[in-house]
Simulated assay, not measured.
Amino acid sequence: MNSIPLLSLVFLSLVLLSSPSRASDIVNLSADNFDSVVDGSKFVFVKFFAPWCGHCKAMAPAWDQLATALKEETDVVIADVDATIERDLGTRFEVRGYPTLKFFRKGSKDAEAYQFGRNVEALLEFVNKEAGTFRMPDGSLSPDAGPPEWMLEAFAAARTCTGGSVECKDALAKARGTEGPSAEDDPAGAVLADFFVKFVGKFIDEGKSPAPLKKESERLSRILSGGSVDPAKKGVMSKKNLILVKLLETLEGGGRPAEEEDDDEKDEL
């Protein structure tokens, strides 16, 4: 009589045990992989924790959300070290309590102690400031994200360039080469720089018309709003669109070419 319910419970237990848990975006570090991850090639934010630590358990959801919010940032790693197992790492980085947070900058292997808030907003504000990212807690890009200063200056120069198309595009390429990131030092930044040069070049070719910028921005917006974007490509596409949006805002009155600003300053003097 009780065999059917018993079999059902056994089956349910097997299903629950075999169901995969949600994959975490946190990188687990150990003595075997620590130095290969914290090698100076990326920004790495590390939490040293103990499984029994109440404070560690309390901040775990915020740490997990931080990792998920930043998962599309190729230059940022959010990591965990179980210091009760990796005792040598705990000693090496002077871990005396839990959780202990250490930040490693790109280009350095030296640890910096983090001593600010432990909610996701404070953690994300810190990473955004130090790593130059613009992520919101839900992983979307902040409205403050946009082209770096060299792009804005190059675009202002393109707008006021009085030479022919070839001459103006040569000046644009020169600005990209001298001010923009290299593919070796910043692959993600180099992709955006090449995108910028391509579409500002079209802007120049079409008589400084905003049409090519608008057309590409509308295309990217449609793709991003479609909901079927490959997560690995979504971040780059969002950044490309933000560059175009900021350039269009400049054309529509959000900013003036550099030469016009200089003239105004001279008039005031």
Results as ranks from 00 to 15, higher is better:
Glu153Ala: 14
Asp88Val: 13
Asp80Met: 08
Lys71Tyr: 06
Arg105His: 07
Phe45Arg: 01
Glu149Arg: 14
Gly180Asn: 04
Val229Trp: 01
Phe48Cys: 04
Cys161Asn: 10
Leu192Gly: 09
Lys214Phe: 07
Lys234Trp: 08
Asp39Trp: 06
Lys215Phe: 10
Thr100Trp: 10
Leu248Pro: 10
Leu269Arg: 02
Val15Leu: 13
Ser21Leu: 12
Leu224Asn: 10
Asp144Glu: 15
Pro231Val: 00
Lys215Val: 02
Gly226Thr: 02
Pro257Phe: 02
Phe203Gly: 05
Glu218Arg: 09
Leu6Glu: 15
Leu242Thr: 01
Ala60Ser: 05
Glu121Gln: 01
Val245Lys: 13
Cys56Ile: 03
Val197Lys: 05
Ser209Glu: 07
Leu224Trp: 02
Asp262Cys: 06
Pro99Asn: 08
Ser209Asn: 11
Ser8Lys: 14
Gln115Val: 08
Ser108Ile: 12
Glu260Tyr: 01
Gln115Arg: 15
Pro61Gly: 02
Val127Lys: 01
Phe199Lys: 05
Pro99Phe: 01
Ala50Gln: 06
Leu192Glu: 02
Arg159Thr: 08
Leu220Tyr: 11
Lys47Asn: 13
Ala113Asp: 15
Ala111Tyr: 11
Glu184Ser: 15
Ala122Tyr: 12
Ala193Tyr: 11
Cys56Gln: 09
Leu17Lys: 11
Leu248Glu: 10
Gly227Ile: 00
Arg135Cys: 00
Ala145Gly: 12
Glu167Gly: 08
Ala157Lys: 04
Pro137Tyr: 14
Asn128Gly: 04
Asp110Ala: 14
Ala183Pro: 00
Asp144Thr: 03
Phe116Glu: 15
Pro143Ser: 00
Phe134Lys: 07
Leu242Ser: 02
Leu14Ile: 12
Thr160Met: 07
Gly146Gln: 11
Ile26Glu: 05
Met151Phe: 01
Lys208Thr: 04
Asp32Ala: 14
Ser182Gly: 15
Ala258Phe: 09
Ile204Asp: 00
Arg135Asp: 04
Asp230Ala: 12
Phe104Leu: 00
Lys174Ala: 05
Glu268Gln: 03
Gly139Ala: 00
Ala258His: 13
Ala60Trp: 04
Ala79Gln: 00
Lys102Asp: 13
Leu29Asn: 08
Lys239Val: 01
Asn2Trp: 13
Arg105Gly: 01
Gly132Ala: 08
Lys208Asp: 13
Val77Tyr: 10
Ile243Val: 14
Glu268Leu: 11
Phe103Arg: 01
Arg92Lys: 15
Glu265Ala: 09
Glu86Tyr: 13
Lys57Gly: 02
Ala232Glu: 11
Gly189Ile: 14
Ala190Tyr: 14
Lys71Glu: 05
Ser18Val: 12
Pro147Tyr: 08
Lys208Gly: 12
Glu259Phe: 02
Glu206Lys: 11
Ser13His: 07
Ser228Tyr: 08
Ala232Ile: 13
Pro212His: 11
Asp80Glu: 03
Pro257Val: 12
Phe93Arg: 01
Ala60Gly: 10
Ala58Met: 11
Asp186Cys: 08
Leu17Trp: 00
Ala188Val: 15
Glu167Arg: 12
Asn2Leu: 10
Glu206Ile: 06
Ser217Leu: 14
